[in-house]
Amino acid sequence: MSTTIKATAAGAVLALTLSVAYADDSVPENTVRIGMYYVHYHSSADDISGPYVPTGLNLSVEDVETLYLAYVRRLSEHFDLELAAGWPPLTKTEGRGPATLGSVPYNGQVISTARWFAPTLLLNYKFFDDSHAWRPYVGVGVNYANFYDRRSTAAGNAASGGPTSISLPVSVGVAGTVGMAYHLKGPWSLFLSYSASVVKSKLTADTAGVERTTDISFGPRALVFAGGYSF
């Protein structure tokens, strides 16, 4: 774990410890949110390397939309701890490079898919006080991304040369957010936020024992629109 992530995690724990003691009992301490994630991947990858791979073969990741779920614990008037996660979206990876590999279509073909289990723990600082309906906030935290149901598509198998397994190790990286909360009435609120996370992994495709690899940075940027219920 990097020094930055360790410091962020330690800060979150310290803030939690300090602020629970001073939480105002008259304000609901828990909020659940539900809404939509609109995820744009600002991805970049090294060219794929390995046996029988021509130069200039690369990847990109298609944008996704998915359900946003979060639990928020009020720590104090100005601090919240947010555990956010999207309903694991099916993320599609496209080939980038030559139009064909031999006679096999490549550029623009969806060559693999994976679902992401990617919760993010954020310590948010809210501006203004509890009397304000509009409360902008900023947050910093840690993202954990686990990629599962990893599959090479038929197009991917054709490009790779046969049935292919995909390995994509877990990523842990820094996450940040800016957002705006609006208190509607009673326990109900609306939220709009924009988040960015560092999600890096090493993609390894194994076809008949031949491995091709690339280091990939997914660079997810997530726009969230959600409603919340506090209790």
């Binding site: 679902r115 599959r151 049935p163 076809t207």
Partner: peptide, 8 residues
């Protein structure tokens, strides 16, 4: 939960 595609 879920499986991953297999190779040869």
């Amino acid at each position: 939960c879920g499986s991953n595609s297999t190779t040869s």
